[in-house]
Design a protein around this nucleic acid. Structure first.
Length: 873
RNA sequence: GGGCGAUUAGCUCAGCUGGUUAGAGCGUCUGCCUUACAAGCAGAAGGUCCACGGUUCGAGCCCGUGAUCGCCCACCA
């Protein structure tokens, strides 16, 4: 006996149970020694202190769909999970939390602070894993990794040392992006530019020898005037030819600087003269190098004025200093003008603080030598992108790269494996700490900086598999098969993995990249805590069920467009889960009535066993759906897969197949096909809706399932011989007739039991089935139909309901239909009369058009006859 | 300043290489407690596919111009 299921589906009870069971049974553990074809994917590791948001759920849903589908194909699948230490982000989060307890990082000291972060990490990391488990992510938890694990840290040191030895890592004093709040250098990518309106100040620089003569320069940052070392004009700018080589007085200081000729000054901009401040501007830094100018610094690492050149402004915060200086310039009559000015201020990606370019000693990776191979593998399509346009974006970025600043003045992260001798100043870069200075034998101290968090994530696809050891995992699962991630980290992460992966393993880190969309709220707004429009995956999961939310995300994940997530959609797919549940209730009832047992096995190819045309039809459809899903999933057209499943299960399997089962005489055969068909449908649905399908699949086998889980059963493959065109045609005929009769009955407001009369060839239509589906009491053929109302046509037959009705309304309806048919017929005929169409269109298209033209013509004749037969008004 | 994407039903979106009457979900309207499901069933209404021009036998789809919205990149002080 099959179980009697609860009246409604309750994901809140069922989902957590399976989520736990899957983990406990270690169902998704990969086997490096398996002879089966390997398929692998590494998770984009979430920040260890973050909690999972809707973007993660989308990402994990898409990944899990592909992973489950691949696993059901019989492959040896590894989905490797893990978390990222996320240097700057995590340090900020913990600093903020500590501040609430009145603690301060610097006061704590490095060791205590790092220990505190580790404590935080343990808690938070567990929570992330719990959430993922609850969402059904079929990862191999035995292989979970963290970027600061010992193994991964070893990989980081190995890569750093090798790059250093190859001359691809260097250390030097350069101007870098500096965040005065985070007090660390950041890479170009971590600076975001947004259009803002600022002010452009015109400041007069007095000629040193000719009092009263001024050179006016334009600047947006007057406070850096104090660090000026020159004024540049364009050598081609006739206005200033006489100034080149002369000295001008830097306003508000006693210093004089030279006017130099340099292309950096563009005659069209501002006044055409530009102040040169190598200490505080990257362009000016380059000018300074060209002209061998000194580098003056007036701002410290916190963005306050300081140093011998800060003068009276020392100690002032940079924007306060600016205000004061503008006032002073005005007072001194040196301010020639102020104008609003549109500019793109660089801000720190993390804290939105305005970036202050600053000279400091940092570590860099030379990108150009690495980029060549990283470009080639994409050009040769060893790595492919979906959507494809990302390939162009990637190549464009690769073609135009600056060196990568990898050192950060933070505490949380991988310490740079370089040691400095306090005595002789010698530096050693090594995999392990040197015992003593090889130069003077003195003690050595490790570099205080840590590495950019993306340096370690860049190694993720191979460091997680054991590199630099030649592990079995590395051999079995590298290169990984696919990467699914968001556009926002295409450069940060995807590009770096390719750069480093190709260089160190000689292979691509992954063969395909799928870039998913951004999840927005129902009004297409970005979700943000400040706007309060955040949809929490755990909340909606609890409300609608994980399966429903997963289905929603999949259904909306059309490649390339953002997802506007609305709760109504989730409610709709919760109803779908319930529909599946209720179908199972009905099916179990039928099976019990027929005294049937569980389906035999869980075959890769689905075929009807005996049965009638309707059985052959549903199995034909199941196979078509399997073929369609295998194609859509292979092309990452997730929305298409979801839509196919939804439509098939609800509107074909339930609305037609289950309904037709109700009146069948051959109960035993029907039950067997019903069970087998449903079993196949569950497997097709499983990658998107893992929970409800597992529950029902297990119930269907009542403890004697052919696999430990539906997740390990084969995904249905399309069996060519199961396609049954004849059964599909017969079913299409039935559907057309039934739909037409229902429509007529609705128009006529017919009570159940109405009679249907028909004329024409019925092509072997099962009228018994028509009666079952339309609530018609009787159907009878007639030679000709005349004089009655409520006529329709379907499948070449004329149909009539024997019910009186309004002649005028019927006349109007028929006239409208006649006009429509006449128009379609005219279009089809025009097409067929067209030489170009006949010659150039595909043969099937022409044949189909011919068939349709014939059909329109027949129907038109019927409509005209029906119109003529209507009683006079 | 460069580059990319979007504009299709009241709303949210599909529509893959040009070819049947442009589809779905939600919403709306009408009728149904038909013994799996009212989280349901049946039926219906609703579209100048942003605009203009072009290519083609044929355009929602290809090309051009423009409009509106959005995103990414960029060292014009």
């Amino acid at each position: 006996m099959f179980p009697e299921l609860a009246k409604a589906y309750t994901p809140q009870e069922i989902e957590p149970r399976w989520a736990r069971a899957w983990v406990e049974q270690r169902l998704f553990q990969a086997d490096a020694a398996s002879p089966r074809e390997a398929w692998s994917l590494v998770i984009p590791p979430p920040n260890v202190t973050g909690s999972l948001h809707m973007g993660h759920m989308l990402e994990h849903t898409l990944i899990d769909m592909v992973v489950r589908w691949q696993r059901m194909q019989g492959k040896n699948v590894l989905w490797l999970p893990g978390t990222d230490h996320a240097g700057i982000a995590t340090q900020m989060v913990v600093e903020r939390a500590l501040a609430e307890q009145g603690q301060e990082r610097k006061a704590m000291g490095r060791e205590a602070f790092v220990e505190a972060v580790w404590g935080w990490k343990r808690q938070s990391g567990d929570r992330i894993q719990e959430q993922m488990v609850r969402l059904g992510a079929s990862c191999d938890w035995s292989r979970a990794r963290f970027t600061l694990d010992e193994g991964l840290s070893r990989a980081v040191r190995e890569v750093f040392v090798r790059l250093y030895e190859e001359g691809l890592i260097y250390r030097g004093r350069y101007i870098v992006n500096w965040c005065p709040r985070c007090q660390t250098a950041v890479s170009d990518l971590e600076v975001t530019h947004e259009a803002e309106t600022g002010k452009l100040y015109q400041v007069r620089y007095a000629a040193a020898e000719q009092p009263g003569e001024y050179l006016t320069v334009a600047t947006t940052r007057p406070e850096t005037i104090l660090a000026d070392v020159a004024v540049a004009v364009n050598p081609a700018d006739g206005r200033y030819r006489g100034w080149i080589g002369r000295q001008v007085r830097v306003p508000l200081t006693g210093r004089t600087v030279a006017v130099i000729a340099d292309e950096i000054a563009q005659p069209e901009f501002g006044t055409g003269a530009v102040k040169i401040t190598p200490g505080h501007d990257p362009n000016d830094f380059a000018v300074g190098e060209r002209h061998h100018l000194p580098q003056l610094v007036v701002l410290d690492e916190t963005g306050h004025m300081s140093g011998e050149h800060a003068g009276a402004y020392a100690g002032l915060e940079r924007f306060a200093a600016r205000k004061r200086m503008v006032a002073d310039l005005e007072g001194a009559g040196l301010l020639a003008g102020v104008a609003d000015h549109g500019l793109a201020l660089g801000r720190c990606q993390r804290c939105r603080t305005v970036i202050e370019p600053r000279i400091s000693t940092q570590w860099f990776v030379k990108i150009a030598p690495l980029a060549e191979a990283a470009v080639e593998v994409v050009e040769r399509e060893e790595i492919t992108f979906t959507p494809e346009n990302n390939r162009g974006i990637y190549l464009g970025w690769m073609a135009n790269l600056h060196d990568w600043c990898i050192s950060r003045q933070l505490w949380w992260g991988h310490r740079i494996p370089a040691w400095h001798c306090a005595g002789c100043g010698k530096m050693v870069v090594a995999r392990e700490a040197p015992a003593a200075c090889p130069g003077c034998g003195g003690g050595m101290e490790q570099d205080a900086d840590v590495l950019d968090t993306w340096f370690s994530s860049g190694l993720w696809p191979f460091s997680t598999l054991g590199w630099p050891e030649e592990t079995a995992d590395l051999k079995a699962f590298y290169p990984t098969s696919l990467l699914i991630t968001g556009f926002d980290i295409l450069f940060f992460w995807v590009a770096r993995m390719i750069l480093l992966g190709v260089h160190f393993t000689g292979q691509v880190p992954f063969r395909e990249v799928y870039i998913h969309a951004l999840v927005r709220d129902a009004d297409r707004q970005k979700m943000s805590k400040t706007k309060g429009n955040v949809i929490d995956p755990l909340v909606v999961t609890e409300k609608y069920g994980t399966d429903a939310v997963r289905f929603t995300l999949a259904a909306m994940a059309a490649p390339g467009t953002d997802i506007a997530l609305a709760e109504e959609r989730m409610a709709g797919y919760a109803a779908f889960a319930n529909k599946i549940w209720n179908a199972a209730r009905f099916i179990f009832l039928q099976l019990n009535q027929a005294g049937a047992g569980a389906p035999a096995g869980s075959p890769a190819e689905l075929r009807a066993e005996g049965g009638n045309a309707v059985d052959r039809w549903i199995f034909s459809r199941l196979n078509a759906v399997a073929a369609s899903l295998n194609r859509s999933l292979g092309e990452y057209r997730f929305h298409e897969a979801a839509e196919t499943l939804y439509h098939f299960f609800w509107h074909e399997f339930c609305d037609w197949y289950l309904e037709l089962t109700k009146r069948r005489e051959d109960k035993a055969v029907a039950a067997a096909n019903l069970a087998a068909g449903f079993e196949g449908a569950l497997r097709l649905l499983h990658p998107v809706m893992p929970f409800v399908t597992e529950e029902l699949w297990q119930a269907l086998y009542a403890g004697a399932a052919p696999h430990a889980s539906i997740a390990l059963a084969p995904f249905p493959a399309a069996a060519l011989d199961a396609a049954d065109a004849e059964a599909e045609r017969a079913m299409a005929r039935l559907q057309a007739v039934v739909t037409e009769i229902r429509s007529l009955a609705a128009k006529a407001n017919a009570a159940p039991g109405f009679a249907v009369r028909w004329s024409g060839e019925d092509g072997g239509l099962e009228w018994e089935q028509v009666r079952a589906l339309t609530r018609a009491g009787a159907t009878a053929p007639v030679e000709r139909i005349e004089g009655h109302l409520h006529r329709g046509r379907a499948a070449g037959m004329e149909l009539q309901l024997a019910i009186a009705g309004d002649a005028e309304a019927e006349r109007g309806r028929l006239a409208k239909e006649r006009a429509g048919l006449a128009a379609r017929l005219a279009t089809a005929r025009a097409k067929l009369a067209n030489e170009g169409f006949r010659q150039r269109a595909k043969a099937e298209v022409v044949a189909e058009t011919e068939r349709l033209a014939g059909e329109y013509e027949r129907e038109l004749r019927q409509v005209e006859a029906a119109l003529g037969a209507l009683p006079e008004a």
